[in-house]
Write a protein that binds this DNA or RNA. Structure first.
Lengths: 242, 242
DNA sequence: CGTTAAGTTGAAGCGTCTCAAGATTGGTGG
DNA sequence: CCACCAATCTTGAGACGCTTCAACTTAACG
């Protein structure tokens, strides 16, 4: 049963959207956003664990994640999962230049989520009349590609502990962008396996690494909670040239 | 000394370009290409080994690779290199939505190369007047992002031998697109270390894997030459669900 | 044909995985 | 409010894949 359903009224308004500054509709002011809202196809809600779309689907919509966390991933033939990225509010998910082609990855809600949907036709119409939106879309795509290159480089080349540190640094900086105080403990709706699949290790090994970081007084990341102790040390571990 | 120099006359014409069907200028016919050529900033040539741009550079140009092979890579602080992709003729390199931001990766010529350059201003002008080019650029970016996701997934999750098989399959299919007979031996201007850095293993270990594939009668990839023996078996090893 | 760079092979060590047992957490009902 | 349960996480021990270092081989080139 699909519990990925239309959001009950009232829908939120783009002109008052708290994450718009991070999202596709960022260009222009509240007035432009209000005008564009007409071409936002619908808002959807889904519970935690709901698969939003799957690799291989022909899924003719893209989404701005309005609220909650979404995991984007690929499954290999051997059953292994690579988490490609963790999407946070404001992120644009599922866009492709050719919506008649199947999705090349899957997405699952890590928390209950609210999504603003844009279907193929509406995206075309939005871009046709609005060079700012076209430019912003290209910018979003470039940024996502850059993040993917960064992840590829550390998953390919760094030892597991450094990968974990890089993963956490990236997450922390993206949470900070969204106004969260990253010096305080933070609820993280990702389990060991989610993070392990993102950095390309087993959850068992991640446990050991995590214990190591905790004993070194850097971060305590356990049971869906991230307690930062020494963010400078974490950053040094991730990007440092020692 | 920088030996990355303007190509001596005569320049090639976009209207007669053999790789245009794979490139940014694909949309429209020869006539459109001829018109657009005015905004191709210049053609450049560089010898094998020449660095085209480096991570951190503010490099206000993008290139269509006209001839030769280019390696795109990132260096980690610890000195390790992740090869992000191998660019072949027709591929678009170095584009960013914001040319005032530094490059997030580097590029080096693997062979002598010829590049068609587009500077920031010309790209803007090309896109302003030409929705087809804008659409094609988005398509290229989406495709590159998709390839990056695929690589991330196999570098993160597959054992070394499968990664190597996937790398070879991808390369072979892209060469086939360019009209090369991939049932015959092929010259590959990549050394052990280039391939090893692409799939995230050491060149020593890649040697062992490569020897294994050779002994199993699948491919013989040594000394810059790829001799395919059983492409079906290679494909099964890469993507098979056994 | 000799020189040099690149690739191959062997042996030993380390990092990560696997399997399995035990601990911690959050949720549920008594 | 506490006891219990299931899911998740942690920890230990042994195995395996990959790395490192070093010696040897092959290919490319003058």
């Amino acid at each position: 049963m699909n519990r990925f359903t239309l959001k009950p009224e009232p829908h939120t308004h783009c002109s008052e959207c708290p994450v718009r500054r991070l999202a596709w509709f960022e260009p222009g002011g509240n007035e432009a956003a209000g005008r564009r809202e007409r071409l936002r196809s619908a808002q959807y809600v889904a519970p935690a664990g709901q698969i939003l779309f799957q690799e291989g689907d022909v899924h003719r919509r893209a989404y701005t994640l309005f609220e909650g966390w979404v995991i984007r991933y690929k499954l290999l033939k051997n059953g292994q999962r690579q988490v490609l990225s963790v999407a946070l509010p404001g992120d644009f998910i599922g866009y492709r230049s050719d919506f008649s082609a199947p999705m090349d990855y899957s997405a699952v809600a890590a928390t209950p989520v609210t999504l603003c949907a844009f279907n193929e036709r509406h995206i075309e119409e939005l871009m046709r009349g609005d060079p700012d939106l076209t430019r912003k879309l290209i910018q979003i795509q470039c940024h996502q590609a850059q993040e993917c290159r960064l992840r590829l480089s550390y998953v390919g080349q760094a030892p597991a502990i450094q990968r974990f540190a890089m993963f956490l640094c990236e997450l922390i900086s993206r949470l900070a962008q969204r106004g969260i105080d990253t010096r305080q403990p933070i609820e993280i709706p990702l389990n060991r396996e989610d993070i392990a699949d993102a950095i390309g290790v087993t959850s068992v090994h991640l446990s050991r690494i995590s214990a190591d970081l905790r004993k070194r007084g850097i971060v305590d990341c356990r049971y869906n909670r991230l307690v930062p102790a020494d963010l400078e040390a974490l950053h040094r571990l991730a990007y440092g040239d020692e």
